[in-house]
Design a protein around this nucleic acid. Structure first.
Length: 426
RNA sequence: GGAGAGGUGGCCGAGUGGUUUAAGGCGCACGCUUGGAAAGCGUGUGUACAGGAAACUGUACCGAGGGUUCGAAUCCCUCCUUCUCCGCCA
């Protein structure tokens, strides 16, 4: 959410910057409703001031033993007038707030201009794909043939876009989680956090998923609880409505959680394999930073996420998302894309964003500034999406016979050097 | 699930219908005092919105939402949450 004063003060410039990310702000409508709302509020407040004053007078007169029946009747009339006007004022205010809540964040000046993914800018590329003297298979074939991955039984138990892992397949997922958490805590200075996997509406509003993107989420019936679509939601909201001393910044947390997404609107995309599932595992990096430091923190956070791929020997590239391709709440985003030989392309495996004060303002996350408390900046990034890392390991380290070499960094966790056919249920 | 007790500013804590403009304390900031510091003394110390060039003023906020009243931190209702005991449970 935006700072109303700032927003109003630089309306034209703001509209231009929003247009660069494809959002059209209707200036006429904005000014109109803002004006009407302020007029209505002013009128109601005037009446309330009068009522307060006269009520106080009644109190004083009663104490002096006077008869105040007539005065009370007059003030009751004011009260009725207030009730009439107030509902109108509240309606206008709600309308205005809804308009404001629906406006995406402003892109940082360093974000490349563009309309869609084709305008994103590659900022670096590391690692080279392992040479293969055979045709690379996709993970869905490798996984099912190895007996470590099963889509049909998952569909029976739950439905489409779910998977079951067996044996070393399941263990590989767990190994990756532990490897990522160990690396981020021991080497990158993050504090391990295990948050709830269900979150309430207020938390989802704080990080920006609600009210606009409810259809992307799973909701519990009869409860104000939703399955978290990313650990960003529970972890960022840990500091909701709190004010933190400046010298404690930056606060760096990492968390493993399952993530649940309805994937409404992505029918037909990534239908095969585990690239796009309703449930996936993720290790998330979250930072709370001083506004002056947040862009340096974004660079290091992105580097921390890339580090997992470096250690696993997986080729990747990092792209700066253009204005038209960024998420609703983000001011700047880097996507990290890993090389997948089975698809012969790079695939997003992490998205690292600086939200500046956009989430902090919605969630009331502050630090104690020089004079008064100010909104801090929040950042987060996947470090990494575990399911997609699983895919990357399996596809990049596959051998001609269909087995998978375990990268050195994972061997202590997996207790195996190569994944061969398990054949437990198939 | 049952019974009981709570939720008040950055923190502690008073406050059961009307100068509460939320007492008092701690903390913090500034000033006085001091060779310097501490102590002491004094002043100030929330958020949001509205009005105003500004100083400043108004409105709302005492867990949340409704209600009663001329007037609600205070009375009533619903919900959330914390603690204690009991029951159930991994």
């Amino acid at each position: 959410m935006h700072d109303l004063q700032l927003f109003r003060g630089q309306l034209e410039e703001t509209a231009t910057r929003l247009a660069s990310r494809g959002f059209r702000l209707d200036l006429e409508a904005f000014r109109g409703i803002d004006r009407r709302r302020r007029d209505a509020v002013t009128e109601v407040e005037k009446l309330k001031a009068e009522r307060n004053e006269r009520s106080k007078d009644i109190g004083a007169r009663k104490k002096a033993g006077e008869d105040t029946a007539e005065l009370q009747a007059q003030v009751r009339g004011i009260g009725e007038r207030i009730a009439e006007l107030e509902s109108g004022a509240e309606g206008l205010d709600r309308e205005f707030q809804d308009l404001l809540k629906g406006i995406p964040n402003l892109p940082h000046e360093s974000v490349p201009l563009g309309a869609g993914a084709e305008d994103n800018v590659e900022v670096r590329r590391e690692g080279t794909p392992r040479p293969m003297d055979f045709e690379a298979k996709a993970h869905w074939d490798l996984g099912t043939e190895l007996g470590i991955l099963d889509f049909e039984r998952a569909a029976k138990v739950t439905g489409a876009r779910f998977a079951v892992y067996f044996g070393l397949g399941a263990r590989l997922e767990r190994a990756l989680i532990n490897f990522m958490l160990d690396t981020h805590t021991a080497e990158h200075g993050y504090t391990e956090t295990l948050p709830p996997f269900l979150v309430n509406s207020e938390s989802l509003f704080g990080t920006g998923q609600l009210p606009k993107f409810a259809e992307d989420l799973f909701k519990c019936e009869n409860f104000d609880l939703w399955l978290a679509p990313t650990a960003e939601v529970p972890v960022t909201n840990l500091l909701r409505d709190e004010t933190v001393d400046t010298d404690r910044l930056p606060i760096k947390l990492c968390a493993y959680t399952p993530c649940f997404r309805s994937e409404a609107g992505s029918h037909g995309r990534d239908v095969r394999g585990i690239i796009r599932q309703h449930q996936f595992q993720k290790v998330e990096l979250v930072k709370f930073a001083h506004p002056e430091q947040s862009y340096a923190e974004l660079e290091s956070l992105t580097h921390d996420a890339e580090d997992i791929l470096r250690k696993l020997g997986l080729p990747f590239r990092t792209v700066a998302l253009c204005t038209g391709d960024m998420g609703f709440s983000s001011a700047k985003t880097y996507d990290i894309e890993v090389w997948l030989p089975g698809q012969n392309s790079f695939k997003e495996i992490s998205s690292c964003s600086n939200f500046e004060a956009f989430q902090a303002r919605r969630a009331g996350i502050r630090y104690r500034g020089a004079k008064k408390s100010e909104y801090m900046h929040t950042l987060n990034g996947s470090g990494l999406a575990v399911g997609r890392t699983w895919v990357a390991v399996v596809e990049n380290y596959q051998q001609k016979d269909g087995s998978v070499i375990v990268p050195g960094a994972l061997r202590p966790y997996l207790n195996a050097e190569v994944i061969t056919r398990q054949g437990v249920l198939s």
